[in-house]
Amino acid sequence: MSDWAYSNVVPWWPYVFILLGGWLPTDMWRYLGVLSANRIDETGEAAAIARTIATSLVAAVIAQLVFYPSGALADIPTWVRVTSLAAGFAAFELSRRRILLGILAAELVIGGWALVVGLG
């Protein structure tokens, strides 16, 4: 498995990984949309399940970043990351769904924590 995972030991492999793992499986659907003459039923059950899986995949990445982060994110404690996301969501809901205010509130939690522990 690890042979086919991302690594930058070989300089061209990351680009092949990005092209085959990112570009191809995204642009093929766009091209199909241009070339398919007939309409696709967006209200069908297959489309509905495709939508929930697409949402759930991104949700899994969100959870990965909140619960199992790497790099500098891992230096921020889990409870701060969870509180930050919760505060962001609360601000988003209270502000009639303004994404920027949600982001601001989430960042304030991380900034506030950094000030308190003296990292700022």
């Binding site: 949402t55 949700a59 921020i76 990351r81 962001g88 969501f89 994404i99 982001i103 950094a114």
Partner: peptide, 15 residues
């Protein structure tokens, strides 16, 4: 880290 955390908040709220 704080900048990277923009992504989960952005996606959670927009989704």
């Amino acid at each position: 880290g704080a900048l990277a955390f923009l992504t989960p908040v952005y996606f959670f709220t927009s989704l």
